[in-house]
Design a binder for these strands. Structure first.
Lengths: 336, 336
DNA sequence: CTGAAAGCGCTTACAG
DNA sequence: CTGAAAGCGCTTACAG
């Protein structure tokens, strides 16, 4: 492990002052061409790599050209697309992205926020794990820029980018009701999660607007895995044979589709799921979904973050990203 | 944007020397309890956050507790699982992960490697974009630790973690041949990609072992998207009606399954794909796959990286991660 | 156009 | 147990 050469050593080899090396490394134009050449040669010979963390220490503002992205789970397809959109924007500005997973754990959110603040990231995009967001306020007061995605904090202490969960869910259920079905089941995630609450609200909105009321026997919350959703859906479908079902997120949709197939009910019970799922077009019938746009969420979030980092001090605002209905068959099944 | 308090300011408020603040912040036990209390109070009052980049500058070894992970595309499900496994291990060591995408671009690989070296990451896990890997050697000589995943560099200049692409592909095709089918099509990615070459080699291995030879009319390379695969598969299936098909990666598998369904051939043509795909169990017949284990790849890679960072100087070694056949129907179709 | 001095926020190496 | 001095690798602010 040979020691890394420093700017001082490059300067000595090139026979110039350290400041001249600094100028060459940073592309300052006012250096004599001959010196530029000598510095370049010395740097190449030694394999010199400028130490950006040292450079940023004294540089005005102390920026690190690093931002943090705290997601529920980076291995989740939704999160992956958000990360990619953030990365693409950041890269154009020579900024790199520190990514980490929170697993819906508020303590982990606080710890990781602290860890990235201590590393002096220039800004932070967070998909909040839920619970109290006061630590965000504390860090903001010390100058850290934040953008929140997917969940709307109350009060709105930072810019937030959210999918239109309530409106999208309502449209999805209205779409189901258009098949002239009247009994619609709801299978959803834990109501402690804001998006789950919003989507459930959209579900009841649609029923109310049609003069219907949710039937408690057809509603299940707290489904976190496809396996769990499959078991619960199977039991519910077998016991109550609803005419249609709305599922609140992709894993639940997968479980519900599996249950319908196992029971041979897939051509009778209409289904629309929130969130797109891969291969949805191949299943028979194709799975109709209300798709989110994670790339748009990521792009908007990183755009707002850079604006804040550049000094935008306007009041925090919420941005809603529309969802899009993708009809593939399951949501348009004719009544038998 | 109020200025961030420094250790010096905390020391002044607490009425102690800066070194005492340093001791408290770093949990050094030999500080009088009363001073610890005063320092804590001052730090809390000012909202002090230790600057880790400054601390690491002087700290022995100059470690940043940051590693880099360069993946083909962070939004790819495979990459997401690798990232998560790396993150989980790193987190236990208080190390964070800078993640970036290469999009099969060797120049981007060099640029990002350079950018992360300049930020003084402690180590780098790279899924090489292909082409020449000499820049890895250069950085290694300057003390940077590397682990490569998914592709085996020649010569083997760093530890490499790879799926058993050739062996797994061979087993997949042997599985197909067990249905007593004889004409097996191959649909695969660009042969410029090493994994695609290895999987094609496994395909021909299996045919040879069975006394068969690949039929050029049934072989297609260069498929990069599901859409492209679908079109090519459709044309090939319609023209040549092979008895079975092996697909070399998940997007190609999806396209081929779509094509079979469109042509109504899904119960006649046996199929095994390399890489697992979501919802594979719902399609009729279920999609049989030779699954990779990206979590194992990530775990092994980060384990090797930390060993190297800790000073392991043994010769670079390649580690092969086994693949696993998941029979779901499509690969076991009885001959009609 | 060039470079010596001071400083970024910390830690190391010492002395008390 | 405590703290003043020197230094990490750079940049800023100056002077020439």
């Amino acid at each position: 492990m040979s020691a890394r050469p420093t700017m001082r050593e490059v300067a000595a080899l090139a026979g110039v002052g350290i400041k001249t090396v600094s100028r060459v490394v940073n592309g300052v134009p006012t250096v004599a061409p001959e010196l530029v050449e000598r510095v370049r040669a010395a740097a190449d010979q030694l394999g010199y790599r400028p130490n950006l963390t040292a450079a940023n220490l004294r540089r005005t503002g102390g920026r690190t050209n690093t931002i943090g992205l705290l997601l529920d789970d980076v291995s989740n397809p939704y999160s992956g697309v958000v990360l990619r959109a953030v990365e693409d924007f950041a890269r154009e500005h020579n900024v790199v992205v520190l990514a980490a997973s929170l697993d819906e754990d508020p303590q982990r959110e606080r710890e990781l926020t602290r860890a990235l603040v201590n590393r002096r990231v220039d800004g932070l995009i967070v998909q909040p794990a839920g619970g109290d967001q006061r630590h965000v306020l504390t860090e903001q007061q010390a100058g850290m820029s934040f953008v929140l995605i997917d969940r709307l904090p109350e009060p709105l202490l930072a810019d937030a980018i959210v999918s239109d969960n309530r409106g999208g869910a309502r449209l999805a259920v209205e779409h189901l009701l258009r098949t002239r079905r009247r009994t619609v089941a709801y299978l959803g995630d834990d109501l402690a999660i804001q998006t789950a609450r919003d989507r459930y609200a959209g579900f009841t909105d649609a029923l109310s607007a049609a003069g219907l009321r949710p039937d408690e026997r057809l509603v299940r919350h707290g489904l976190r895995t496809a396996e769990q959703a499959r078991a619960v859906a199977r039991e519910l479908f077998a016991a109550h044979a609803p005419e249609a079902v709305f599922t609140s997120q992709n894993l639940v949709t997968i479980g519900a589709v599996e249950a319908l197939h196992e029971l041979g009910m897939e051509s009778r019970v209409a289904l629309v799921g929130f969130d797109d799922i891969p291969l949805a077009a191949i299943v028979r019938p194709g799975v109709s979904v209300m798709a989110q746009d994670p790339a748009a969420v990521g792009r908007l979030a990183v755009g707002r973050l850079f604006a804040r980092m550049a000094g935008d001090t306007s009041a925090p605002a919420a941005h809603t990203v529309p969802t899009r209905l993708i009809p593939r068959g399951s949501g348009e099944l004719p009544r038998l």
